[in-house]
Design a protein around this nucleic acid. Sequence first.
DNA 1: AAACGGCAAAATG
DNA 2: CATTTTGCCGTTT
Length: 166
Amino acid sequence: MMKETLTGIRAGSYLAYFSEQGLARLEFPSDRRNRKPAEGATADLPPGLCRWRAITRKAVEQALAGRKPAVLPALDLAAGSAFQREVWKALLTIPPGQTRTYAQVAALVGRPKAVRAVGQACGANPIPVLIPCHRVVSSDGGLGGFSAGIEWKKRLLAAEGRAGFG
DNA sequence: AAACGGCAAAATG
DNA sequence: CATTTTGCCGTTT
């Protein structure tokens, strides 16, 4: 499978992990599932690292401001299953300020009944904020959950001008 | 093989 | 309405 994360970059308040394929994981302070920063050998840094790092910083900045990032860095989603990657790709199509229900996302990936599985996939999203798992809400008008803490979800949606959730 | 979710729709009071 | 089943599906143990 994919090699474990090669290198970690601290930038501002988050920690970005890059593999040779691109950005593999983003961790924010209150993210629950953070592991030990795996130090990468400075020798074999991913080729595009310098560029990716800059792009990532800009993209996160814009995303946190509630705007659509002009450009995203290359993403390495190899860690996920085929199903999860489909879901994550689908999430990327949801514009800022908009939301979809877990059911709608399930339909988007062609598995209308795999609603709970979609929930799981969202929770497994390795690149929060840039892959907008926070724009997925429950059908009953509620927020649904959020692995990094529901407050983040509220905050992100609020930043996108989405009233009624915060 | 069984249990577990960031769910949803139907049934029930 | 608010709660409680019941059905579903990919992951994880």
